[in-house]
């Protein structure tokens, strides 16, 4: 074990760089996206206007993918990904489905399925 706060990601370097991508904004337009909200690419991407990160998101979201998985895939902080997602949603290039407020924890059948699934791991 270590007493040093390892979770402070010093190696990540200055956080200015990713934020420059989104011109210093720290909040997406509209509602914040849950970490496990489902993102999907929809529609035909316009050719010219998108940055490489936005293209990357659209590629990764051809099938359903969570916001957290996207952040890992793009290797960007979650907040930056959220802003990019807000822009893409504003352009109707993705759909984002939030998990229900109480979550699936209220669903007995699903919880039982999870228990069995964990046992089988």
């Amino acid at each position: 074990m270590s007493d040093s706060p390892q979770w402070l990601d010093e190696e990540a370097g200055p956080v200015v760089r990713p934020y420059a991508l989104i011109r210093g904004r720290t909040h997406p337009s509209g509602d914040a996206f849950d970490l496990v909200a489902t993102v999907r690419a929809i529609g035909d991407p316009p050719s010219g206007e998108l940055g490489p990160e936005e293209r990357h998101i659209l590629r990764a979201a051809r099938g359903p993918i969570s916001v957290a998985d996207l952040a890992v895939e793009l290797d960007l902080p979650v907040g930056v990904v959220r802003v990019l997602l807000g822009d893409l949603r504003d352009q109707a290039l993705i759909s984002v489905t939030s998990p229900p407020a109480v979550g699936a924890r209220s669903n007995e059948r699903i919880l039982k399925e999870v228990i069995n699934g964990l046992r089988a791991l």
Binding site: L8, A12, P14, V16, Y19, T26
Partner: peptide
Amino acid sequence: DDLDGVEGKNTTTVAM
């Protein structure tokens, strides 16, 4: 962390 030019916001990165 002082982030000049980023709307004067202070942010830090935390790894989960």
